[in-house]
């Protein structure tokens, strides 16, 4: 009896070894496509690194509308006078009435952007075109400086590591600025219109709801 059982056991084992272990096709694509990367983000919360040069801490929230368009809302707090090249140019003209060496007392701003991405890749890894309206007001000891920028951006969005976003872009547009005296002296407001442009970059975090 033992011999018969042993014979069958050996036979079964040999048969099992002779069978090839064949893989199968798998419809669970999700498992194979999951690389941990947030490539299909719904939103992006970002800090504008280049705004720090102008003294503003700009934070932006970008919301995807569909795979081509997104909208972005931004708010900024000015912590320092910074270096705003376009203001410095204007300052040179109005320096007698609005001295540029005054201390900054307060600064706030907001922005609204509409973005269009190529290749239906909104909002994570693609080139984009954007139209932005930005309003910033800086309050000094005796006057307020208000800049309204309307500009076009040609930019690139990146996914660094799994969820860290990066954005870079070249801007060009119009600046409508206004110097308004806040003191008692009767100094007329000065309005200026000029070019606004340059390079902007920021880092953030992609969010998937």
């Amino acid at each position: 009896m033992t011999r018969i059982v042993l014979f069958f056991c050996i036979g079964y084992t040999l048969n099992a070894f002779s069978q090839k272990d064949l893989p199968t096709t798998d419809s669970n694509a999700k498992y194979y496509l999951d690389d941990g990367k947030n490539t299909d983000a719904d939103a992006d919360f970002r800090i504008a690194a280049t705004s720090l040069i102008t003294g503003f801490l700009d934070l932006a929230y970008e919301q995807r509308i569909n795979h081509t368009y997104s909208v972005e809302l931004g708010g900024g707090y000015q912590f320092n006078k910074g270096v705003d090249v376009f203001k410095l140019v204007d300052d040179g003209v109005v320096s007698l009435s609005f001295p540029s060496d005054e201390e900054l007392t307060k600064g706030m701003g907001f922005s609204l952007t509409a973005k269009r991405y190529g290749g239906e890749e909104a909002i994570s890894q693609m080139t984009f075109q954007a139209l932005t309206y930005r309003n910033r007001t800086s309050t000094f000891e005796t006057y307020k400086y208000n800049a309204q920028d309307i500009f076009y951006t040609l930019g690139w969005k990146y996914l660094l590591s799994n969820s860290i976003s990066a954005q870079a872009g070249f801007n060009a547009g119009l600046r409508l600025s206004k110097y308004a005296h806040t003191g008692t002296a009767r100094i007329k407001d000065v309005k200026k219109t000029g070019f606004y442009g340059g390079f902007s970059a920021g880092f953030g975090c992609y969010i998937k709801y």
């Binding site: 194979y32 496509l33 999951d34 690389d35 941990g36 990367k37």
Partner: peptide, 10 residues
Amino acid sequence: FVNEKNKKKY
């Protein structure tokens, strides 16, 4: 698709 996490191309 190249899955960088799994280091495989499917």
